[in-house]
Nucleic acid binder design. Sequence first.
DNA 1: TAGATTGTTAATCGATTAACAATC
DNA 2: TAGATTGTTAATCGATTAACAATC
Lengths: 208, 208
Amino acid sequence: MTENQIPDVVIARLPIYLLKLNQLLRDGQKVVSSAQLSEMIGIPATQIRKDLSWFGGFGKQGSGYDVIHLMDQLKNILNLDRIWQMVVVGAGNLGKAVVEYDGFRQKGFEISAVFDNEPDRIGSRVGHLVVQDVEDLESYIKEHQIYVAALTVPASAAPSVAEKLVKAGVRAILNYAPVRLLMPKNVEISNVDPVLSLQRMTFYLPRK
Amino acid sequence: MTENQIPDVVIARLPIYLLKLNQLLRDGQKVVSSAQLSEMIGIPATQIRKDLSWFGGFGKQGSGYDVIHLMDQLKNILNLDRIWQMVVVGAGNLGKAVVEYDGFRQKGFEISAVFDNEPDRIGSRVGHLVVQDVEDLESYIKEHQIYVAALTVPASAAPSVAEKLVKAGVRAILNYAPVRLLMPKNVEISNVDPVLSLQRMTFYLPRK
DNA sequence: TAGATTGTTAATCGATTAACAATC
DNA sequence: TAGATTGTTAATCGATTAACAATC
């Protein structure tokens, strides 16, 4: 069963295409060529075509890609033609910001619960949610069949909470804690660590 | 002048090594081998050694790397043996969270000013700072020789603000707005877009 | 039809990995 | 010295890019 494995880098670019297509749609553009997309997002046209061709022929020779149609296809490929329920673990400043950020819901990720272990926080309101006891995390995930979680606990607590999440059935973790979490290979993890990004960029800055 | 160009992917891994070394230091470990590091962060030992060897020989055959010495070297390479002043543009929820997040300062990135264009927000306090008028952004950057900025304005405003930043002399932008910004090639940009990360991960999740 | 642009093959480029001599 | 682990070369692997036939 040698599956025609699609490279991870290709998958990572699809949401970028989708983002730009959204914008084109709002601007009322009906059709777009790979050359136009290329210029707008700074990815070579050949690469865009190659990426898309992993999944089929979505374009039309001579004219380009129908914006709406391509968006639908990408959403389907990325499993985004549905709403994903998501839990947030950690109700500190970061957790609050995540819960109150509107961008997740707008793109189909609905935060359905937030958890913490601090007695002071449990029971308090964050956004439109009430903070629940992390003791109830596993049963909640199982009962509601949650696959996606955001981790906004301190670095020290992250590994053990992540393990709990995985044990309960979570398959994708958005990790805001500044640690590298080792995951079984059937669990996806994305690290949101702006400090690492800054530390990369400073390499290229003038030393003074 | 064919410079021995170091790949971007290599640079991007160095802060990860640094993060883990920090942890080892706290744990009191003095020396670490590439094999140990490998196991701890899930990057092949060969790759770690290869990455480091771009910059010189930091290890000792037979024993490994001195934790403190390697940290010092990495900090030097990444230009992290100093404090970077940073401005934040956009004082909405996201901007507030960024200003109030302690992790930047801890790692040597000091937020020295925050800007917005909303009259209601200008003059109000965020963390220990007072929100300044974005009209004064360029002069502030020039006067204080700021090279690093975080962009937490709405997507629609991001491109024009980014342009202002670059014009004033900013060379590294941490972009929180959900847009791709095209930058001159002497300006570094990192996108912090958790939604894109989620949209990548859902590809791998079971469809139901 | 002529012009434009896709989808795909093949060539190139660059990054990862294996292997091992050097050396602490 | 013997054992361990680095630093580096060469081989492999995989991703990007160029080129162009197919086709709208």
